[in-house]
Write a protein that binds this DNA or RNA. Structure first.
Length: 731
DNA sequence: CAATCCTATC
């Protein structure tokens, strides 16, 4: 071992402090750092260790590490007698050995109680033993007993006690301990201050943490890291990044935990350039082999929309853990690759057990593509493993049922779980998705009657529901009441909803004036909503004006190009369409192809638009051509649509290429007559598909449901539940 | 180190 057992002195060379004290991270990280120690100790080959253990009479050279080894190998009986010999010889127990002994807390306590001479180290050992085993309260009690017995705590005691206050969430005790270390002069110690920073910031008092940090005479990497992660956990990513920069400037070299924290902050802020630099640094310093670093890199790249880089990092991890898998699943979902997310989940299950966070992430992917069977399977799995009520899982299940259009199971789920704001919000989106504005408002009132206080998201959803139902007056009333009655200051998203509300209803002047009167600077999304309104109502000048504002500040988001393309196309300006397409090409942006999913016999089948690779593609196309002929006979022609994906192809080919049609046709071929068909699409359904599917529902007498990004379309007997309102103005 | 519900566009 790197150090011998001795009572820590108050004044120590700062470079050695971290060796003598546990790192002041949360209890989880404490375990982590101990694992590292264990790994160091067991780095000698196992058979060598065993032979050492077997021949050992008494290792006077390094009794503590020998004791540690015995504990590691589960030779408890031997360890105990060894420990007794150490006691007799008055050899103090060091930190590592103590930690090892504490693997069996009950026995350690028995030993402790039997001990004839208890020095400070034995007290520290048993107290930190309790902390390590998440019995903080017992540890704290013993700490007070220790003081009653007249044994003064040392630096080691105090760092662990302060960390325990953090785990207990006991701020009052934490402040008391802070006072105590100031009085005893221990607060000058780096590790003690570090644990204070950690304690305060994890309890949400980042200002108090900052005060401790600012007053430190000298700091180490751990201090900086504690402060950076403190900012990060208190949702102050800007401060985290700034602090990291200062740290770097002062010549400190980040460790794996520093990197993980600052990468998280980059992910939060979408700082891709900085993230790439940190990635490079991690590679050079060899820190990338820490899974914690690799995992945050996956998250950072996904959130910065560089999913390919995220996948690359993921595939290079030799021993992927639950978090690696969860992060990549979430990344795929975030980047609109939900189908792959489900495939990754299936792969993951072959080697690892998912936890509730993983399930939440997968459910969110299921919800997005309407993968009901997969979602149900996860529901069953959650119930089986007893995770059903953990964390966000209940709401994720609720969301999955709502977004898959299954309101009955959704209500069952809602009635059997904790009804927080998010749960109500999720059901509210159900109404918004169906364009049922009146019902949404009614539901909102029910929510108020149940004494659930609305939040920002409630109002976004409500405004959106009003907008989709053309309820301008109601929507505006709702917007004004949110601040006046509920004290929620509208943010950019709310303003965007109002622009959309006015714009869709054709009140373009009002929408524009509304933007001018906004108290905050409008972002591209606000202008985007206006541009969309101008597209619907063919207002070329105002639309171009809005577009100018958009591209002044955002040239990387694909959506705005698509919107502008469709805007010009709808107004017949084809040369402008070509210009926008060139801009996209120059910026190396590609659009997502249309994609639809259909579940047949519990298996999900995905179709890209113009898909020619499906094994049954010829059958599917033949079926569609028959339908096309029948439509022509009935005097219906499919109108032009989908400008952006338009290919040089015959009309019949275009007709057959749309992914939702492929999905519907596949469902028709492979299910028994009369079975309802459920299709999910990643984009909006075009008018042509809408009328085609109406026609199909009539001639084959089937219920067909298509959920696009905007809403549900339930087709029956040639009529759609959206009353054709949902696709108005779509070309 | 990873997490549900949120406008417009893909």
């Amino acid at each position: 071992m790197a150090f011998s057992a001795k009572t820590p002195r108050i004044l120590i060379n700062p470079d050695h402090r971290n060796l003598l004290h546990p790192k002041p991270y949360s209890s989880k990280s404490l375990c982590f750092s101990n694992h590292r120690k264990v790994r160091e100790i067991s780095s000698t080959k196992p058979h060598q260790q065993l032979s050492v253990l077997n021949t050992a009479s008494f290792n006077t050279q390094d009794p503590n590490s020998h004791l540690h080894l015995l504990c590691l190998h589960g030779r408890l009986q031997k360890a105990l007698s060894y420990f007794n010999s150490m006691q007799e010889l008055q050899i103090p127990l060091d930190e590592d050995a103590a930690v090892a002994m504490c693997g069996d807390l009950t026995r350690a306590r028995l030993l402790f109680d039997k001990m004839t001479r208890r020095d400070r180290i034995s007290w520290n050992a048993i107290i930190s033993g309790y902390f390590e085993n998440e019995e903080c309260l017992k540890g704290i009690r013993l700490f007070f007993t220790m003081r009653e017995r007249g044994v003064d705590p040392d630096l080691m005691t105090m760092t662990s006690v302060i960390s325990a206050c953090e785990s207990l969430g006991d701020e009052r005790l934490g402040r008391e301990m802070h006072g105590y270390v100031i009085v005893t002069g221990m607060s000058d110690d780096v590790s003690v201050s570090n644990s204070l920073i950690q304690m305060y910031s994890s309890l949400g008092h980042w200002e108090a943490a900052e005060k401790v940090f600012d007053r430190m005479e000298w700091r180490d990497v751990v201090s900086w890291t504690a402060m950076i992660s403190g900012y990060e956990n208190n949702v102050l990513p800007d401060k985290a990044v700034d602090t990291y920069r200062t740290m770097e400037m002062q010549g400190f070299v980040p460790d794996e935990i520093t990197l993980a924290s600052v990468l998280s902050a980059c992910a939060c802020l979408g700082k891709l350039d900085m993230g790439i630099k940190l990635h490079e640094l991690a590679r050079r310093a060899g820190l990338i082999s820490y899974i914690i670093v690799a995992n945050t890199l996956i998250d950072m790249y996904s959130k910065c929309k560089c999913i390919e880089k995220a996948l690359e990092v993921f595939h290079n991890i030799p021993d992927k853990d639950v978090i690696s898998w969860t992060a990549i699943i979430l990344g795929l979902r975030l980047n609109n690759r939900c189908f792959e997310a489900l495939i990754f989940f299936r792969q993951m299950k072959l080697s690892l057990k998912p936890n509730s966070v993983t399930l939440v992430s997968v459910l969110s992917a299921c919800a997005r593509i309407g993968a009901l069977m997969c979602g149900k399977e996860i529901h069953a799995y959650a119930l089986r493993t007893g995770m059903g009520l953990e964390g966000f899982l209940p709401n994720a299940l609720l969301d999955m049922y709502v977004r898959c259009g299954r309101m009955e199971p959704a209500w069952n789920q809602f009635n059997s779980q904790k009804k927080d704001v998010a749960a109500w919000n999720i059901l509210l989106t159900g109404y918004a998705q169906r364009g049922q504005g009146t019902l949404a408002v009614e539901f909102f009132n029910r929510m108020l009657e149940s004494n659930v206080y609305p939040d920002e998201i409630t109002f976004i959803t409500l405004l959106c529901a009003c907008s989709k139902s053309g309820m301008v007056t109601e929507g505006l009333k709702c917007f004004h009441s949110m601040e006046l009655e509920y004290g929620i200051t509208p943010n950019l998203k709310h303003y965007a909803c109002v622009v959309d509300l006015l714009g869709r209803a054709g009140q373009l002047e009002e929408a524009y004036e509304f933007i001018l009167e906004m108290p905050i600077k409008p972002d591209p999304a606000i202008w985007g909503a206006l541009l969309n309104a101008c597209r619907i109502h063919r207002q070329v000048d105002l639309g171009e004006f809005a577009a100018q504002h958009i591209f002044e500040s955002d040239t990387r988001s694909i959506g705005y190009y698509v919107l502008l393309c469709n805007f010009y196309a709808d107004n017949g300006k084809w040369d402008e369409v070509a210009k926008v397409r060139k801009m996209m090409k120059d910026n190396e942006l590609t659009i997502d192809p249309g994609c639809s999913w259909v579940e047949v016999k519990g298996k999900i089948h995905a179709f890209l638009s113009g898909d020619n690779f499906h094994p049954q593609i010829n059958e599917i196309k033949a079926a569609l051509e028959v339908i096309y002929e029948k439509m022509k006979l009935a005097g219906l022609d499919s109108p032009e649509c989908d400008v952006i994906n338009e290919v040089e192809a015959s009309k019949a080919e275009i007709f057959c290429g749309h992914s939702e049609r492929l999905g519907v046709a596949y469902g028709l071929i492979n299910t028994a007559p009369g079975t309802p068909i459920w299709v999910t699409k990643n984009l909006y359904m075009c008018q042509s598909c809408h009328s085609t599917i109406k026609f199909i529902s009539k001639i084959v007498r089937r219920e067909i449901s298509v959920r696009d990004t905007e809403q549900f379309h339930h087709f029956k007997d040639g009529v759609c539940s959206c009353g054709d309102v949902g696709i108005l103005g779509k070309g």
